[in-house]
Amino acid sequence: TEDARKEAKKIIDNGGSPDEAAKFIKKYGLSEDQARELVKRAL
């Protein structure tokens, strides 16, 4: 979702790792793979 993508970008912009961002956005109901893909797109 757009919200999850924004959250991921915010985490990374604040110095978080892509892994942290992926873990965080899994709470939106995404699978591990979906979360990682979304983080990649957010970069």
Rank of each mutant, 00 (worst) to 15 (best):
G15M: 04
K10S: 09
N14Q: 12
K6I: 12
K27I: 08
I12Q: 03
D3R: 14
K27V: 06
A42E: 06
A22F: 13
A35H: 01
A8M: 08
K40Q: 13
A8H: 02
K23H: 11
A22L: 15
D33I: 09
A35P: 00
I11F: 12
A8C: 12
E32L: 12
S31M: 03
K23M: 13
E2F: 11
F24K: 07
E32T: 05
A22T: 10
N14L: 10
E37M: 08
D13L: 12
E20I: 05
P18K: 05
I12G: 01
S31C: 04
N14W: 07
G16V: 04
L38G: 00
E2P: 09
R5Y: 15
Y28S: 00
L43I: 12
A8L: 12
R36Q: 09
K9N: 04
G15S: 03
I25M: 10
R41K: 11
E7K: 07
D13Q: 12
E32H: 05
D13K: 11
D19R: 09
D19Y: 12
K6T: 11
E37N: 07
I11M: 05
P18Y: 09
L30E: 00
A42I: 15
G16W: 10
V39W: 04
K27P: 00
K26S: 11
E20W: 10
D13V: 07
R5M: 15
Q34L: 09
G15F: 06
A42Q: 07
A22S: 06
D19G: 07
A42F: 14
K10L: 10
D33R: 08
R5N: 05
V39G: 01
I25Q: 02
G16E: 03
D33L: 09
L38P: 00
L38F: 07
K27M: 08
I25S: 02
S31V: 01
S17P: 05
A21K: 03
A21G: 01
K10E: 08
G29R: 01
E7R: 06
R5D: 05
D3K: 13
E37Y: 03
L30N: 00
K6G: 06
G29K: 04
F24I: 12
K27T: 05
T1N: 12
A42T: 11
I12M: 12
R41M: 14
P18D: 07
A4E: 01
F24E: 10
N14K: 09
I12E: 02
A8W: 11
E37D: 08
K40I: 13
A22H: 06
A35G: 01
A35M: 06
E20F: 09
D33A: 12
N14S: 12
G16Y: 08
E2M: 11
D3W: 15
Q34R: 03
G16T: 03
P18L: 14
D19S: 10
S17L: 06
G15Y: 04
I11N: 03
G16K: 03
E20Q: 09
K10N: 08
T1Y: 15
A22R: 07
A35K: 00
D19A: 11
F24G: 07
S31K: 00
D3L: 15
A4G: 03
A21S: 03
R41Q: 14
E32D: 13
K9L: 14
E7I: 13
L43P: 01
I12V: 05
D3A: 14
K23L: 12
L38K: 00
L30A: 00
R5T: 09
S31E: 02
E2L: 11
E20L: 08
K26I: 14
K23F: 10
Y28M: 07
I25L: 15
D33V: 10
F24M: 12
K27N: 05
K9H: 08
L30R: 00
K27R: 11
A22M: 15
D19L: 08
R36D: 04
R36M: 12
K10I: 07
Y28V: 00
N14A: 14
K23Q: 14
S31Q: 02
E20M: 09
I12A: 02
K10T: 08
L43E: 03
S17W: 07
L43Y: 07
K10H: 09
S31A: 04
I11E: 01
Q34S: 05
K40V: 10
A35W: 14
K10M: 10
P18S: 06
P18C: 15
I11H: 02
L43F: 08
N14I: 06
G29N: 06
F24V: 10
K40N: 12
T1V: 14
A35R: 00
I25V: 07
L38I: 15
K26N: 04
K40D: 11
L38W: 04
T1W: 15
E20K: 03
K40L: 14
E2Q: 09
K40A: 13
E7Q: 11
K27W: 05
P18G: 06
S17E: 04
Q34C: 14
D3G: 08
E37W: 06
A35F: 10
A21P: 01
R36E: 06
S17T: 13
G29H: 03
L38S: 00
N14H: 09
S17H: 07
E20S: 05
D3Q: 14
L38V: 13
I12W: 05
K9W: 13
A35V: 11
L30M: 06
K40S: 11
R5F: 15
G16Q: 05
Q34Y: 06
L43G: 04
R5S: 09
K6V: 10
F24Q: 10
A4Y: 09
I11V: 06
A35N: 01
Y28R: 00
A21F: 15
T1I: 15
G29T: 01
Y28H: 01
Q34K: 05
P18I: 13
R5L: 15
D19F: 11
E20G: 01
E32A: 08
K6F: 10
A42W: 14
K26R: 14
N14T: 07
T1K: 10
Y28N: 00
K6H: 08
V39R: 04
G15H: 06
G15R: 03
T1Q: 12
D13H: 08
A21R: 05
K10R: 14
K26F: 07
K26Q: 15
F24H: 10
R36I: 11
Q34D: 09
F24L: 11
